[in-house]
C-alpha cells in the first residue's frame, strides 16, 4: 500500500494516543477500539479494499501528529478528516491499479453460493449453545420471518418484552455481534487445530 507512511507506531506514541482518548487507560483502550471499528467500516463503506490496513494507516498518522505534540480538540473529527485524506489516496491508488489490470472486476462481484456444509455451521451451533438462553431465543425469534411477517413478528416480540422496537433492534444487534465474534474465534481455533 503506497499510501502508507514510513513512520511506524512506537509504544510511546501509542501511549500518547490512548491518553488523548482518555486519561483512564481502560476507557482510552475502549475508545481506541471503537474508533478503529469506525475507521474500518468507513473504508469498507467507501468500497475500499484492505480496510483494516487503511484504518491502521489513519491511526498511525493521527498518532504521529499527537506524538509530535499537536494539540487536537475534536479527536473523532480529526480522525475523520485524516480518514478522508487516506481514502482519497486509496481510491487514486485503486484507479491506477485498475488501469494496469483492467480485467473485468464484475466477474468477481457476486459471492458464490454455498452448497457444502461449512465449518461456520458447526461454530454457529456451538456459539448458539454458549449464549444465555434468553439471548439465544431472542435472536432466533428476531430473525425468524421474512419481509412483512418479520416486521409484525418483531413488533410482537418487542411488545412481549415491553421494550420499544428500536431497543429490540439494538439488543438483537448486540447479540448478533457477540455471536459473530464467537464464530470468528471458533473458526480461528478450528483452523489452528488443523
Amino acid at each position: 500500500m503506497s499510501a502508507k507512511t514510513k513512520w511506524s507506531l512506537t509504544t510511546q506514541a501509542f501511549e500518547k494516543l490512548l491518553n488523548a482518548f482518555s486519561l483512564d487507560r481502560e476507557e482510552g483502550a475502549a475508545k481506541y477500539e471503537v474508533i478503529r471499528q469506525k475507521l474500518i467500516r468507513y473504508f469498507e463503506w467507501r468500497s475500499i479494499a484492505q480496510a483494516d490496513e487503511y484504518a491502521d494507516e489513519t491511526i498511525n498518522r493521527v498518532a504521529r501528529r499527537i506524538d509530535e505534540g499537536q494539540q487536537i480538540e475534536n479527536l473523532s473529527g480529526y480522525f475523520y478528516g485524516v480518514a478522508r485524506m487516506v481514502s482519497k489516496e486509496a481510491l487514486k491508488e485503486r484507479d491506477r491499479a485498475v488501469a494496469i489490470d483492467d480485467a473485468p472486476h464484475t466477474a468477481r462481484q457476486e459471492i458464490s453460493e454455498h452448497v457444502e456444509p461449512d465449518p461456520r455451521v458447526i461454530c454457529l451451533d456451538r456459539c448458539l449453545e454458549s449464549l444465555p438462553p434468553d439471548n439465544g431465543r431472542l435472536i432466533i425469534d428476531y430473525y425468524q420471518e421474512e419481509r412483512r411477517a418479520k416486521i409484525e413478528l418483531r413488533q410482537e416480540l418487542a411488545d412481549s418484552l415491553h421494550i420499544p422496537l428500536n431497543a429490540l433492534r439494538i439488543r438483537a444487534h448486540r447479540i448478533r455481534v457477540s455471536l459473530e465474534k464467537c464464530i470468528t474465534n471458533c473458526l480461528q481455533q478450528a483452523s489452528s487445530a488443523k
Binding site: 469498507e44 462481484q109 457476486e110 459471492i111 455451521v121 454457529l124
Partner: peptide
Amino acid sequence: AAMVARSPRLAERVEFARVW
C-alpha cells in the same frame, strides 16, 4: 455485491448471514 467483492470482512459478515 461490488462492495462485498472488495471487502473480505464484509464478505465474512455476508457468509455469517447466509449460514444464519
